[in-house]
Write a protein that binds this DNA or RNA. Structure first.
Lengths: 149, 149
DNA sequence: CGCAACTCAGTTGTGCACAACTAAATCGAG
DNA sequence: CTCGATTTAGTTGTGCACAACTGAGTTGCG
């Protein structure tokens, strides 16, 4: 029987940790003129270019309400281009521009900086990642059972 | 040497977990007409009433840019009242209204719902909380060393 | 074939999160 | 005592997140 007082120490811890990490990224990404969500999109595109908006949304768990304006900003910044698909005019394919591809070089050092800041060894990272993924799965399953989409 | 590909699986996992939990709270808090950050403020006030805005900000790690409009909404909803301090006109004390106190009853079941959804035993909760706190500390310390306030 | 159901991207509106700033009140060194 | 530095809450502007909706395009059932 969790109390109103203690309950949130885990949820709040998660919320605090997430904001702390985002805030570190803010400093680190200042150089690249990217926000953290924009960086996530760039990571996805560096890994595999020419993605549909839909695919990016599935991978990052973001809907078009978040992605559309974000992608518009990335396009304005000259990092990506968007093209309606000829074979399915509903879809839009997002591709890296030369500047977008080039930015990858500037991003190379970021993972190590973040890793150092977290001061976790590989095993710690792996364990935490596994626990967070399990938590996300469990919480999402519960929510979907509670409020069916 | 972390790669641009793998790096973010932990940071992204944190980001995804945090959004998943918030999204569960959205469903659970619908009944109380509260958002998750508003619920955190109410939790803080249920624990100790009559707090200064400054104190709430310290406890929740939120600045006045976030708290001021949030508290204004809570006041409009009739859950809190704000009063300038007589002895220090800069400060504002936030107090629960009767409706705000009464809402606590409706919130009583929430911790158990969230606990169940996370499907973690007490030891798991404690361990995760400790790890998240350590992570937050470490990341914040690193960021502050990098970009002194 | 025809059209209703669905899909996809985008828009609108609300509420955080946070940087940068303002204005008023208080403090403290000289 | 005075005036510059600091503290406190609030405002403004930007960018997520997300619900609800729109509109164009596609699909598939009868």
């Amino acid at each position: 029987m969790a109390s109103l007082r203690l309950d949130d120490q885990l949820c709040f811890g998660l919320y605090a940790a997430s904001r702390a990490v985002t805030s570190l990224y803010r400093v680190v990404l200042e150089d690249l003129d990217l926000t953290y969500p924009q960086y996530l999109v760039m990571l996805a595109l560096w890994e595999q270019d020419h993605r549909l908006v839909k695919e990016l949304g599935t991978e990052l768990n973001l809907d078009s309400g978040t992605l559309s304006p974000l992608l518009k900003r990335l396009q304005t910044a000259g990092l990506v281009v968007r093209n309606r698909q000829a074979d399915d005019e509903r879809s839009v394919r997002v591709s890296l521009s030369d500047a977008g591809k080039a930015l990858r070089e500037k991003a190379k050092g970021i993972p190590d900086v973040i890793g150092t800041a977290m001061s976790l060894d590989d095993a710690g990272v792996a364990r935490m990642r596994a626990e967070l993924n399990r938590l996300t799965e469990s919480v999402n399953a519960y929510r979907e059972a509670m409020a069916p989409a």
